[in-house]
Design a protein around this nucleic acid. Structure first.
Length: 252
DNA sequence: TTCCAGGGGTAGA
DNA sequence: TCTACCCATGGA
């Protein structure tokens, strides 16, 4: 839900610019699935399938949801396919812009990155960000101290030293993947857990102010909670702990 | 003015 | 592993 993409609630259309050939794509809800323009190039389809997780099998999670009142809406309403960007690089940078800031700040930072450093309305490539100076990123994108983190990741990807896209369908186990993500400059526990969710690994709960507030309110009568208490709250959902947290909705 | 956002890095214990 | 401190920025 961040630039360069945009959700139009009137026409129920999700649109934005994909990096591949800078193609502008619109996705619209359809009774049989997702409707795309007939002009959509075939090479764009895998990216769209990735973004919308059309190939993810959530059967096991849905079975778990049926026995939990606060998750029963999930299989009924088709929840659980968390929207993601076409590239891991874009999501890594976006997650970094969610850290220690309000959501409005994240939107502002991503808007600036697209407008100041991208081309044709697309999210900037690793090369485009790697070629920008840290000072440029601070002043033109307003990302503050995150500029050094963004620059560092962009340079590693642009130089070929780091292949983030290889993580898309990796069979590496979740803990190894977590450790790998934590090595990235600017990616801590929260960001790594968020990125794992985007990669389809849901064992970790991204613990941020939202998670603290949610767990405090629903499970600890409004009292302050520790990260350990948050993890313990969703531990029974095992490899789906993070997804259970994200989809949690107390029955009316 | 102060506080705090969808936290993370570093140093020191 | 835990704590204290610093890090930019804007809205409340």
């Amino acid at each position: 839900m961040l630039p360069p993409f945009h959700w139009d609630g009137e026409t129920l259309t999700y649109s934005g610019c994909l990096l591949e050939e800078y193609y502008r794509v619109s996705m619209k809800s359809h009774p049989d699935g997702i409707a795309l323009d007939t002009s959509t190039p075939a090479e764009i389809i895998p990216s769209i399938r990735w973004m919308l997780r059309l190939d993810d099998d959530l059967t096991a999670f849905y079975t778990i949801c049926e026995s939990e009142p606060a998750l029963q809406h999930v299989p009924i309403q088709g929840w659980g396919r968390l929207l993601r960007s076409a590239t891991i690089f874009e999501d890594v940078i976006k997650v970094i812009t969610t850290t220690n800031t309000a959501w409005s700040g994240t939107i502002r930072m991503c808007t600036n990155l697209v407008n100041e450093f991208g081309e044709y309305g697309a999210f900037p490539t690793a090369s485009q960000l790697a070629n920008a100076s840290v000072e440029d990123l601070k002043t033109r994108a307003g990302v503050g101290y995150r500029a050094a983190y963004i620059q560092s990741v962009a340079q590693q990807v642009a130089s070929g030293e780091l292949d983030l896209e290889a993580l898309k369908y990796t069979t590496r186990d979740t803990n190894a993947l977590y450790k790998f993500l934590r090595q990235l400059n600017g990616v801590g526990d929260y960001a790594a857990a968020s990125l794992l969710m985007l990669l389809g690994r849901y064992a970790h709960v991204p613990i941020d102010s939202l998670a603290r507030e949610m767990v405090s309110r629903h499970f600890y009568e409004g009292n302050p909670v520790t990260p350990a208490q948050i993890r313990q709250t969703f531990a029974r959902f095992g490899e789906y702990a993070g997804l259970a947290y994200w989809c949690w909705k107390e029955p009316e």
